[in-house]
Design a protein around this nucleic acid. Structure first.
Lengths: 348, 348
DNA sequence: CTGAAAGCGCTTACAG
DNA sequence: CTGAAAGCGCTTACAG
């Protein structure tokens, strides 16, 4: 199969090849495969044998062309290198695969222009449904989504006016709850360390939740209590040092992501601070490792796989008929903030 | 766009619609889009405007049907919920996307039957290339790969006789090197904690490398020095306790994965052991968090993104012409074992 | 530089 | 229960 070795001249079996082998027409083969009950048992058997013998595989391009719709689901995520997203992808792809819908995956790198470019490249497959992350899209992306005229699920955010359906939770509410929890646990000087570069709407919503709680609780809100950093563990470490330098009496740091929180936590330990006695550190996202650190990280739990599965359910429902209403998956996405369940957050 | 609201009756613009708008034939539109230099400048301009006005998007199903090959690349990975694989997927999808090849992603869950089922569902898209993980496949999978008659890249393993091309590294050699490194650092009773359930060939190759080193170095090889556990952090914790109980004087534990190692490491710390003075713990995989733990985890580095990118390169090369020989990516996959570079491991 | 014809491999819609 | 006809939206191969 090297590039210079010529491809074998025999092409793959077509439906008409199977038909010839089975002594019927292509139409009957098509029926035997799609609606076996509409074909006589003997015919069915002959077709099945012919399929086996010829190694026939249905050509989806042809099927899509004539049926005017593929079974492909397009999914655009910022990255797969983040268990928060990969967990969602896992839940999404598993349920979709069970129903015969493969996932065409694109990574936007958190960039709306990249998202548009990828979508432009994918839309030509006439997907049966589209999953995008968040609700911040370019005009071009919106136009394509509109034009595609298929179910679109926006994941993660809960926009006031979703494009089509939205599955997710409120970042703002979750951050609000976490801030309140820290207050309930006795912390009074709560800093907020967040991802500032690149900016993203999720982080900003979390910040809004933090600020809302701080205001309500009458907590201090000096400038030094907030720090914005880049992405990564190292950024978390740097952020911790920045905040401690500016506000030595801070007693809790709420980080806008677990990555930052893990960096901050390990740095705090390196500096000899006792966590959470001297300083509490909270994250957002509930990555697996959060529970593994010693001490373990307090964090906002995200129902990753559940959201992916729920997105798949919504798509399957809307694409129509074939979906059987599988049980066992909550009809709402929820978030948990350190043990306390918070209300349902799905809306369509 | 809800299920009961009828889809808008206007269908998407076809090439012939664009042609009418531009006052040419569909053939000329096709040329203007694919080989603009073969079309007069004015015609090109008129076509471009017509494309804009109509919101035309090329129907890939039709294109695939006639050209007898899609631009889709099928990729089957055990899971995306593991940074080792997701890093590879990232490298793979990024380079492929740049060249207009979308990724049809499937998660096998480490199960060869699932792999076969997914491949059967995907192969009907007549992909331009296929990426699979490892070289352990069912007979059915092999038959399909053979029949598909497209470039197939096997990732991770380095089988003696690759199916087509293999991009990866030797798990056995890497584990051998790590074991030797532990010996060089002064450890003499080196245990091996590995994923035993479900079994997988990567783990077994690693074990072979460990045993080879142990034998060469004349180290003890009592039964109690080996333990097999399930997957997960908790399994790592349990494994550590099992080994310490059976062999209290063990001085190093080499884990077949970072997940196990992180579990073992945190448990060791909880037990009050000093790492690495009392007990060394080494992992395999170099997940990001390995470096973040205090103390940080010694681990075998895997060039994840590089392997993905290399797989993409190989596919693009073989699919033909269009690939431009992008620079900046090593032509070999390599592995690093705690700082020491180990030879090139690519073979095709 | 542009176009008319044929056909890729299926399914839809109709007829029997 | 089965089939003949038409056509989905493109590109290939040829002609001009």
């Amino acid at each position: 199969m090297s590039a210079d070795k010529p491809r074998s001249p025999r092409r793959m079996a077509r439906m008409s090849d199977v038909a010839r082998l089975a002594g019927v027409t292509a139409m009957t083969v098509s029926r035997a495969l799609r609606t076996p009950e509409k074909v006589s048992p003997e015919t069915r058997k002959r077709v099945e044998e012919a399929v086996q013998r010829s190694g026939f595989v249905l050509n989806y391009a042809a099927r899509s062309l004539v049926s005017q719709r593929s079974q492909i689901i397009v999914a655009l995520f910022p990255t797969v290198m983040n268990s928060v997203f990969s967990g969602t992808i896992e839940g999404l792809s598993k349920l979709l695969a069970e129903h015969g819908y493969p996932l065409l995956l694109g990574e936007t790198d958190f960039d709306t222009e990249t998202e548009e470019r990828l979508l432009a490249g994918f839309i030509g497959w006439r997907p049966a449904g589209i999953v995008v992350t968040g609700s911040n899209h370019t005009v071009g992306t919106r136009a394509m989504l509109q034009n595609a005229d298929v179910p679109v699920v926006e994941l993660w955010g809960l926009p006031k006016k979703p494009f089509d359906v939205s599955v997710g939770f409120s970042n703002s509410d979750a951050a609000y709850e976490m801030t309140r929890s820290l207050w309930e646990w006795g912390y009074r000087r709560i800093a907020f360390l967040s991802l500032g570069y690149p900016r993203n709407s999720r982080t900003e919503e979390r910040r809004r939740g933090y600020l809302r709680a701080v205001e309500e609780l009458g907590l201090p809100r000096e400038r030094g209590l907030e720090a914005k950093v880049h992405f990564g563990f190292q950024a978390g470490r740097d952020g911790l040092r920045t905040i401690l330098q500016r506000q030595p009496d801070v007693d809790a740091i709420f980080c806008s992501s677990d990555t930052l929180a893990v960096g901050a936590l390990t740095e705090a330990i390196r500096m000899g601070l006792r966590v959470p006695q001297d300083l509490a550190i909270a994250g957002f996202g509930d990555v697996e490792l959060a529970a593994e650190l010693v001490p373990s990280l307090t964090t906002v739990h995200l129902p990753r796989a559940e959201m992916g599965a729920r997105a798949a359910e919504v798509l399957l429902e809307r694409i129509g008929g074939s979906y059987d209403g599988r049980a066992g998956i909550a009809s709402t996405a929820e978030r948990r903030c350190d043990g306390g369940d918070i209300g349902a957050c799905f809306r369509g």
